[in-house]
C-alpha cells in the first residue's frame, strides 16, 4: 500500500510524530469518506496525497495564530539529541522543527513543486510572504546542517 508514502508525507508536513499520526488518521478518514468523489482522473496516490496535504494545511493554518517564534530557539536544543548517524531522521527532524508556516511553505515548494502563487492561495498568504517564508526556512535549515556537520566533526 501507499500508506508508507502517505505517512512519510505527513511526517514532513507535521511538526512531530504524534501530529503526523493524527494527520494520517484524519487523511484516511477523509479518503474513505470521499472515495466516491475520486473520478479516476490522475493517480489515486496523487489524489490521496493531495488530501493528506490539505489535511495538514488545515491543521496548521488554524493553529498558526498560536505559534510562538521562541520555539526556534528551544527546538535547536532538541536537535542535539538526535542520533547523528541517521541522516534522514536528522533532515526530517529539521523540517519538523521549522515553524509551521515555514515548514508548510518549504514542503509545498521544495518537495511537492507547488508555485508561490499556488502556495499563497492555499495558505491565504501573499506571494511575497510565501517567498520570504521559503527563504527563511532555507536559512534555518542551512544553519542546522552546518551546526550538525560541525558537531559530527567534533565527534
Amino acid at each position: 500500500m501507499f500508506s508508507g508514502k502517505l505517512f512519510g508525507l505527513c511526517l514532513k508536513y507535521a511538526k512531530n510524530y504524534p501530529d503526523a499520526e493524527d494527520v494520517l488518521q484524519d487523511s484516511f478518514v477523509t479518503i474513505f469518506e470521499k472515495i466516491h468523489q475520486y473520478k479516476y482522473q490522475g493517480s489515486f496516490e496523487g489524489w490521496a496525497k493531495r488530501i493528506a496535504i490539505n489535511t495538514a494545511l488545515k491543521r496548521y493554518r488554524s493553529q498558526s495564530k498560536l505559534q510562538i517564534v521562541k520555539e526556534i530557539e528551544t527546538s535547536e536544543e532538541v536537535t542535539l539529541e538526535v542520533d547523528e548517524v541517521i541522516e534522514t531522521d536528522f533532515l526530517l527532524n529539521s523540517i519538523q522543527e521549522l515553524p509551521d508556516k515555514y515548514r508548510l511553505v518549504f514542503n509545498l515548494y521544495a518537495m511537492d513543486h507547488f508555485s508561490h502563487k499556488e502556495i499563497s492561495e492555499m495558505l491565504n498568504i501573499s506571494v511575497g510572504t510565501s517567498k520570504s517564508n521559503l527563504s527563511r526556512a532555507r536559512l534555518i535549515l542551512k544553519e542546522k546542517i552546518i551546526a550538525h556537520r560541525k558537531q559530527q566533526e567534533k565527534a
Binding site: 500508506s3 508508507g4 508514502k5 505517512f7 512519510g8 511526517l11 499520526e21 534522514t88
Partner: peptide, 8 residues
C-alpha cells in the same frame, strides 16, 4: 526526503 516513506 522526496520519496521518504515510513510505515505507520
Amino acid at each position: 526526503l522526496g520519496d521518504f516513506e515510513k510505515k505507520p
